Amino acid sequence: MSIRLEMLRAFSVTAGQGTLAGAAAVLGRTPSAVSMMLAQFEQEVGGPLFETDRKNRLTPLGQLVLEESLRATDVFDKSVGAIRRHVLTSAGIVRIAAVPSATVTLLPDVIEVFRRAHPDVRIEISDVDSATVRARIQRDEADIGILSAQPGDPLEGERILSDDLGIVCAEGGPIHKAHLATDGASDWGLLRLEPLIANPLCELVDDPHVDQMRLASTLEARNTTAILSFVRRGFGVSILPFDAVRNQPDGVEFFVPTQSVSQRELRKIKQEKELLRGPVFDFWSLLNE
Protein backbone atom coordinates (compact mmCIF):
# COMPACT_ATOMS: atom_id res chain seq x y z
CA MET A 1 0.00 0.00 0.00
CA SER A 2 1.32 3.49 -0.87
CA ILE A 3 0.71 6.85 0.77
CA ARG A 4 -2.55 8.36 -0.45
CA LEU A 5 -3.86 11.90 -0.31
CA GLU A 6 -6.71 10.88 1.98
CA MET A 7 -4.11 9.68 4.51
CA LEU A 8 -2.39 13.06 4.46
CA ARG A 9 -5.71 14.81 4.94
CA ALA A 10 -6.84 12.50 7.75
CA PHE A 11 -3.53 13.03 9.56
CA SER A 12 -3.48 16.84 9.18
CA VAL A 13 -7.11 17.13 10.32
CA THR A 14 -6.50 14.87 13.32
CA ALA A 15 -3.40 16.86 14.28
CA GLY A 16 -5.44 20.06 14.06
CA GLN A 17 -8.42 18.72 16.04
CA GLY A 18 -6.38 16.86 18.64
CA THR A 19 -8.84 13.96 18.92
CA LEU A 20 -10.11 11.15 16.74
CA ALA A 21 -13.71 12.19 17.44
CA GLY A 22 -13.05 15.75 16.31
CA ALA A 23 -11.27 14.60 13.17
CA ALA A 24 -14.04 12.11 12.37
CA ALA A 25 -16.65 14.87 12.60
CA VAL A 26 -14.70 17.07 10.17
CA LEU A 27 -13.94 14.25 7.73
CA GLY A 28 -17.39 12.68 7.84
CA ARG A 29 -15.95 9.30 8.90
CA THR A 30 -16.22 7.17 12.04
CA PRO A 31 -13.46 7.47 14.68
CA SER A 32 -12.51 3.83 14.08
CA ALA A 33 -12.13 4.44 10.34
CA VAL A 34 -9.90 7.46 10.98
CA SER A 35 -7.84 5.47 13.50
CA MET A 36 -7.33 2.66 10.99
CA MET A 37 -6.24 5.09 8.29
CA LEU A 38 -3.77 6.76 10.65
CA ALA A 39 -2.31 3.39 11.58
CA GLN A 40 -1.83 2.55 7.90
CA PHE A 41 -0.26 5.96 7.35
CA GLU A 42 2.23 5.49 10.20
CA GLN A 43 3.12 2.08 8.80
CA GLU A 44 3.83 3.59 5.38
CA VAL A 45 5.80 6.49 6.88
CA GLY A 46 7.84 4.14 9.02
CA GLY A 47 7.43 5.66 12.46
CA PRO A 48 4.95 7.02 15.04
CA LEU A 49 3.43 10.43 14.32
CA PHE A 50 1.72 11.00 17.70
CA GLU A 51 3.27 10.92 21.17
CA THR A 52 0.20 9.25 22.71
CA ASP A 53 -3.05 7.62 21.64
CA ARG A 54 -4.89 10.86 22.52
CA LYS A 55 -3.60 12.45 19.28
CA ASN A 56 -2.93 15.83 20.89
CA ARG A 57 0.89 15.77 20.71
CA LEU A 58 3.05 15.13 17.66
CA THR A 59 6.42 13.43 17.54
CA PRO A 60 9.28 15.28 15.79
CA LEU A 61 8.56 13.09 12.76
CA GLY A 62 4.90 14.02 13.06
CA GLN A 63 5.75 17.74 12.97
CA LEU A 64 7.67 17.29 9.72
CA VAL A 65 4.96 15.12 8.17
CA LEU A 66 2.29 17.65 9.19
CA GLU A 67 4.04 20.46 7.31
CA GLU A 68 4.31 18.34 4.17
CA SER A 69 0.73 17.08 4.51
CA LEU A 70 -0.62 20.62 4.73
CA ARG A 71 1.47 21.64 1.74
CA ALA A 72 0.24 18.71 -0.35
CA THR A 73 -3.44 19.06 0.54
CA ASP A 74 -3.31 22.81 -0.04
CA VAL A 75 -1.92 22.34 -3.56
CA PHE A 76 -4.54 19.68 -4.28
CA ASP A 77 -7.40 21.82 -2.99
CA LYS A 78 -6.26 24.78 -5.09
CA SER A 79 -6.09 22.62 -8.20
CA VAL A 80 -9.56 21.21 -7.58
CA GLY A 81 -10.87 24.73 -6.95
CA ALA A 82 -9.41 25.96 -10.23
CA ILE A 83 -11.04 23.09 -12.12
CA ARG A 84 -14.40 23.68 -10.48
CA ARG A 85 -14.26 27.41 -11.15
CA HIS A 86 -13.56 26.71 -14.79
CA VAL A 87 -16.64 24.54 -15.17
CA LEU A 88 -18.86 26.51 -12.78
CA THR A 89 -20.57 28.12 -15.72
CA SER A 90 -20.25 27.66 -19.44
CA ALA A 91 -18.65 31.11 -19.65
CA GLY A 92 -16.37 31.11 -16.60
CA ILE A 93 -15.83 33.18 -13.48
CA VAL A 94 -13.82 36.29 -12.54
CA ARG A 95 -12.87 36.75 -8.88
CA ILE A 96 -11.85 40.26 -7.83
CA ALA A 97 -10.50 41.54 -4.51
CA ALA A 98 -10.55 45.35 -4.43
CA VAL A 99 -10.21 48.22 -1.99
CA PRO A 100 -13.55 49.90 -1.19
CA SER A 101 -12.89 53.10 -3.15
CA ALA A 102 -12.21 51.07 -6.31
CA THR A 103 -15.36 49.03 -5.74
CA VAL A 104 -17.43 52.20 -5.55
CA THR A 105 -15.88 54.24 -8.34
CA LEU A 106 -13.84 52.13 -10.75
CA LEU A 107 -15.53 48.77 -10.99
CA PRO A 108 -19.09 49.79 -11.95
CA ASP A 109 -17.93 51.30 -15.27
CA VAL A 110 -15.62 48.36 -15.99
CA ILE A 111 -18.32 45.81 -15.20
CA GLU A 112 -20.79 47.61 -17.44
CA VAL A 113 -18.45 47.33 -20.42
CA PHE A 114 -17.32 43.80 -19.55
CA ARG A 115 -20.85 42.39 -19.36
CA ARG A 116 -21.66 43.53 -22.85
CA ALA A 117 -19.07 41.08 -24.15
CA HIS A 118 -19.47 38.44 -21.41
CA PRO A 119 -23.09 38.51 -20.20
CA ASP A 120 -22.92 34.98 -18.75
CA VAL A 121 -19.66 35.27 -16.84
CA ARG A 122 -20.00 35.16 -13.06
CA ILE A 123 -18.25 38.07 -11.28
CA GLU A 124 -17.36 37.76 -7.58
CA ILE A 125 -16.13 40.91 -5.80
CA SER A 126 -14.56 41.08 -2.33
CA ASP A 127 -14.52 44.55 -0.78
CA VAL A 128 -11.37 44.51 1.41
CA ASP A 129 -8.30 46.56 2.34
CA SER A 130 -4.98 46.49 0.47
CA ALA A 131 -3.30 43.99 2.80
CA THR A 132 -6.19 41.55 2.36
CA VAL A 133 -6.13 42.08 -1.41
CA ARG A 134 -2.50 40.91 -1.44
CA ALA A 135 -3.29 37.94 0.80
CA ARG A 136 -6.21 36.78 -1.36
CA ILE A 137 -4.10 36.92 -4.49
CA GLN A 138 -1.31 34.94 -2.82
CA ARG A 139 -3.78 32.31 -1.56
CA ASP A 140 -5.43 32.04 -4.99
CA GLU A 141 -8.71 33.32 -3.59
CA ALA A 142 -8.91 36.02 -6.26
CA ASP A 143 -7.83 36.28 -9.89
CA ILE A 144 -7.36 40.08 -9.92
CA GLY A 145 -6.50 42.40 -7.06
CA ILE A 146 -6.94 46.18 -6.94
CA LEU A 147 -5.16 48.01 -4.13
CA SER A 148 -4.13 51.49 -3.04
CA ALA A 149 -0.46 52.49 -3.07
CA GLN A 150 1.62 55.59 -2.55
CA PRO A 151 3.27 57.01 -5.69
CA GLY A 152 7.01 56.45 -5.52
CA ASP A 153 6.77 53.21 -3.57
CA PRO A 154 8.48 50.17 -5.12
CA LEU A 155 6.34 49.15 -8.05
CA GLU A 156 3.72 46.55 -7.28
CA GLY A 157 1.51 45.40 -10.09
CA GLU A 158 0.40 47.85 -12.77
CA ARG A 159 -0.85 51.39 -12.24
CA ILE A 160 -4.49 52.01 -13.17
CA LEU A 161 -4.90 55.64 -12.10
CA SER A 162 -3.87 58.18 -9.50
CA ASP A 163 -5.82 60.88 -7.72
CA ASP A 164 -5.43 63.36 -4.86
CA LEU A 165 -6.10 62.48 -1.26
CA GLY A 166 -8.09 65.03 0.67
CA ILE A 167 -10.17 65.73 3.75
CA VAL A 168 -13.84 64.77 3.75
CA CYS A 169 -15.84 66.61 6.39
CA ALA A 170 -19.39 67.55 7.32
CA GLU A 171 -20.80 70.61 5.57
CA GLY A 172 -20.78 73.56 7.96
CA GLY A 173 -18.58 71.77 10.48
CA PRO A 174 -15.48 73.26 12.15
CA ILE A 175 -13.04 72.05 9.49
CA HIS A 176 -15.26 73.11 6.60
CA LYS A 177 -15.61 76.61 8.07
CA ALA A 178 -11.87 76.85 8.75
CA HIS A 179 -11.12 75.77 5.19
CA LEU A 180 -13.43 78.43 3.77
CA ALA A 181 -11.72 81.04 5.95
CA THR A 182 -8.33 80.20 4.43
CA ASP A 183 -9.53 80.98 0.89
CA GLY A 184 -8.39 77.50 -0.11
CA ALA A 185 -4.83 77.80 1.26
CA SER A 186 -5.27 75.04 3.85
CA ASP A 187 -3.06 72.28 5.23
CA TRP A 188 -3.50 68.96 7.02
CA GLY A 189 -3.27 70.74 10.38
CA LEU A 190 -7.01 71.44 10.10
CA LEU A 191 -7.57 67.84 11.15
CA ARG A 192 -6.90 68.90 14.74
CA LEU A 193 -10.30 70.64 14.82
CA GLU A 194 -12.33 67.41 14.70
CA PRO A 195 -11.88 63.71 15.53
CA LEU A 196 -10.36 61.63 12.75
CA ILE A 197 -12.18 58.58 11.42
CA ALA A 198 -9.12 56.51 10.56
CA ASN A 199 -8.83 54.27 7.51
CA PRO A 200 -5.86 52.61 5.73
CA LEU A 201 -5.55 55.52 3.25
CA CYS A 202 -4.45 57.78 6.11
CA GLU A 203 -1.13 55.93 6.07
CA LEU A 204 -0.44 57.20 2.54
CA VAL A 205 -0.31 60.83 3.70
CA ASP A 206 3.19 61.89 4.70
CA ASP A 207 2.35 64.58 7.25
CA PRO A 208 2.96 64.72 11.03
CA HIS A 209 -0.54 66.07 11.74
CA VAL A 210 -2.10 63.05 10.05
CA ASP A 211 0.23 60.67 11.91
CA GLN A 212 -0.73 62.19 15.26
CA MET A 213 -4.46 62.17 14.55
CA ARG A 214 -4.36 58.61 13.22
CA LEU A 215 -2.70 57.34 16.40
CA ALA A 216 -5.21 59.22 18.56
CA SER A 217 -8.26 58.06 16.57
CA THR A 218 -10.95 56.11 18.43
CA LEU A 219 -12.99 55.20 15.34
CA GLU A 220 -11.78 53.35 12.25
CA ALA A 221 -13.69 52.24 9.15
CA ARG A 222 -12.58 50.70 5.86
CA ASN A 223 -15.69 50.92 3.74
CA THR A 224 -16.12 54.16 1.78
CA THR A 225 -19.89 54.21 2.17
CA ALA A 226 -19.59 53.71 5.93
CA ILE A 227 -16.98 56.47 6.24
CA LEU A 228 -19.18 58.97 4.39
CA SER A 229 -22.13 58.00 6.55
CA PHE A 230 -20.13 58.55 9.74
CA VAL A 231 -18.88 61.92 8.51
CA ARG A 232 -22.42 62.99 7.63
CA ARG A 233 -23.57 62.00 11.14
CA GLY A 234 -20.91 64.24 12.68
CA PHE A 235 -18.68 61.50 14.13
CA GLY A 236 -15.60 63.20 12.69
CA VAL A 237 -13.69 63.65 9.46
CA SER A 238 -11.63 61.31 7.31
CA ILE A 239 -9.19 61.09 4.41
CA LEU A 240 -10.34 59.75 1.05
CA PRO A 241 -9.29 60.04 -2.60
CA PHE A 242 -11.10 62.50 -4.84
CA ASP A 243 -12.46 59.74 -7.05
CA ALA A 244 -14.27 58.18 -4.08
CA VAL A 245 -16.18 61.35 -3.19
CA ARG A 246 -16.67 63.08 -6.54
CA ASN A 247 -20.39 62.31 -6.21
CA GLN A 248 -20.45 62.78 -2.44
CA PRO A 249 -23.85 62.86 -0.74
CA ASP A 250 -25.51 66.01 0.55
CA GLY A 251 -24.06 67.28 3.79
CA VAL A 252 -20.48 66.23 3.00
CA GLU A 253 -17.65 68.41 1.70
CA PHE A 254 -14.28 67.43 0.26
CA PHE A 255 -11.14 69.47 -0.31
CA VAL A 256 -7.47 68.82 -1.02
CA PRO A 257 -5.04 70.68 1.29
CA THR A 258 -2.82 72.89 -0.84
CA GLN A 259 0.21 72.29 1.35
CA SER A 260 1.81 68.82 1.34
CA VAL A 261 -0.35 67.46 -1.45
CA SER A 262 -0.63 63.67 -1.27
CA GLN A 263 -1.80 61.21 -3.86
CA ARG A 264 -2.71 57.56 -4.00
CA GLU A 265 -2.50 55.14 -6.91
CA LEU A 266 -4.83 52.31 -7.73
CA ARG A 267 -2.84 49.33 -8.97
CA LYS A 268 -3.93 45.97 -10.29
CA ILE A 269 -2.09 42.83 -9.23
CA LYS A 270 -2.22 39.11 -9.94
CA GLN A 271 -0.17 36.08 -9.04
CA GLU A 272 3.31 36.71 -10.40
CA LYS A 273 3.49 33.65 -12.63
CA GLU A 274 -0.20 33.46 -13.45
CA LEU A 275 -1.05 33.60 -17.16
CA LEU A 276 -4.46 35.22 -17.44
CA ARG A 277 -6.84 33.75 -19.98
CA GLY A 278 -10.34 34.25 -21.32
CA PRO A 279 -12.74 36.47 -19.35
CA VAL A 280 -10.17 37.16 -16.61
CA PHE A 281 -7.70 38.52 -19.16
CA ASP A 282 -10.44 40.66 -20.73
CA PHE A 283 -11.41 42.13 -17.35
CA TRP A 284 -7.73 42.78 -16.53
CA SER A 285 -7.31 44.66 -19.81
CA LEU A 286 -10.45 46.77 -19.30
CA LEU A 287 -9.15 48.11 -15.98
CA ASN A 288 -6.76 50.44 -17.83
CA GLU A 289 -9.28 51.62 -20.41
Rank of each mutant, 00 (worst) to 15 (best):
E67P: 00
E67I: 11
E67K: 15
E68C: 11
L70Y: 09
R71D: 05
R71H: 12
T73S: 04
T73N: 01
V75I: 11
V75Q: 15
F76R: 15
D77I: 04
D77M: 08
K78L: 12
G81H: 13
G81L: 13
G81R: 14
G81K: 13
I83Y: 05
R84H: 11
R84V: 13
R85F: 02
R85I: 03
R85T: 02
R85W: 04
V87M: 12
V87C: 05
T89R: 15
S90H: 11
V94M: 14
R95N: 11
R95T: 11
R95L: 03
R95P: 01
I96R: 03
I96D: 04
I96V: 14
A97H: 05
A97F: 04
P100K: 01
P100I: 00
S101G: 03
S101W: 04
A102K: 12
A102M: 14
A102F: 05
V104I: 09
V104A: 04
T105Y: 11
L106Y: 06
L106N: 05
L106K: 14
L106E: 03
L106D: 02
L106V: 15
L107V: 07
L107C: 03
L107H: 07
P108R: 00
V110H: 10
I111L: 12
R116H: 15
R116I: 15
P119D: 04
R122M: 13
R122D: 13
R122A: 10
I123T: 05
I123C: 10
I123A: 05
E124Q: 06
I125F: 00
S126C: 02
S126I: 00
S130F: 01
S130M: 06
A135N: 10
A135H: 06
R136I: 00
Q138R: 12
R139N: 13
D140C: 03
D140M: 06
